[in-house]
Simulated scan of single mutants.
Amino acid sequence: MMSNHSIKLFNYNTWANKTLLNHLMQLPSELCHENIKSVFPSIFDTLMHIYIVDYGWHSLLTRKYTSDDYEAIRSTIARLTEEVKALNLQDFGKKQDLLSKSYYDFVSTTDMEQTVIYSTLSMQHSEVIQHVVNHGTYHRGNITAMLRQLDHAGVPTDYSMYLYQSMK
């Protein structure tokens, strides 16, 4: 059974990532790479982390590799880090868009109540989507705090703002 809730959550996550990225593109380009004492050394490192973790969960959902295939996970992280670290925000956004489309295709055609074992953790597909969304929300909050440390405003990306914007 397809889960409308999972699609709605994933659409929110995609909207929030795009909203943040569009906001960052309006700021001085060097800002995203400025070193800052925070959870990650820069805003861009935080964006990369969100993307790499999203990619990893997508790979597990689509069974590109298994959760105990640590060598595949390590090599994927290394490859993605190399691919992404030199990108500008526009090109990074294109990679995010491709991943979002793949996620949407998965969520809209898969039984989201199906349970899968990840190492020893049993999760429904819908729970994985919830985790991906929560993870992104947490780190978008980190980026907002980092922006404030750098004397710039953040942009609202919470779920209620998404719902409000979606009504327009």
Score class of each variant (00 low, 15 high):
156 P>G: 11
36 I>G: 06
91 D>Q: 13
29 S>T: 09
3 S>L: 11
66 T>N: 13
69 D>R: 02
139 H>Y: 07
1 M>T: 15
115 T>C: 09
144 T>I: 08
83 E>R: 13
3 S>T: 07
120 T>W: 02
130 Q>P: 04
63 R>H: 13
136 G>Q: 05
44 F>D: 01
94 K>W: 12
150 L>A: 15
137 T>W: 05
91 D>E: 14
106 F>Q: 00
24 L>V: 11
69 D>L: 06
70 Y>K: 08
108 S>F: 06
156 P>N: 13
41 P>Q: 04
93 G>W: 01
162 Y>P: 02
68 D>N: 12
145 A>N: 03
166 S>G: 10
87 L>Y: 11
88 N>I: 03
88 N>T: 03
152 H>W: 06
30 E>N: 14
27 L>T: 04
12 Y>H: 09
137 T>I: 11
133 V>L: 00
132 V>T: 07
165 Q>K: 10
100 S>C: 14
15 W>T: 02
148 R>D: 03
107 V>A: 06
78 A>N: 06
167 M>S: 13
32 C>G: 08
132 V>K: 00
108 S>K: 10
73 I>F: 15
137 T>R: 02
5 H>V: 13
94 K>N: 11
84 V>L: 15
88 N>M: 05
150 L>T: 12
57 W>K: 01
68 D>L: 06
24 L>Y: 10
167 M>R: 06
102 S>G: 01
99 L>F: 05
137 T>P: 04
129 I>G: 01
32 C>V: 14
37 K>A: 15
57 W>C: 05
78 A>W: 04
157 T>K: 05
75 S>F: 15
5 H>Q: 08
60 L>P: 11
77 I>C: 06
153 A>M: 14
74 R>T: 13
21 L>R: 07
28 P>M: 07
60 L>I: 10
61 L>E: 09
148 R>E: 04
136 G>M: 04
102 S>M: 03
40 F>C: 04
67 S>G: 04
7 I>C: 09
49 H>E: 00
161 M>Q: 15
84 V>S: 11
18 K>L: 03
8 K>V: 09
147 L>G: 09
3 S>E: 02
150 L>R: 13
117 I>L: 14
83 E>K: 06
70 Y>R: 09
46 T>C: 07
145 A>I: 02
27 L>C: 05
114 Q>F: 05
6 S>K: 00
77 I>W: 15
84 V>G: 09
52 I>D: 03
145 A>L: 02
10 F>P: 03
157 T>A: 08
66 T>R: 13
114 Q>K: 14
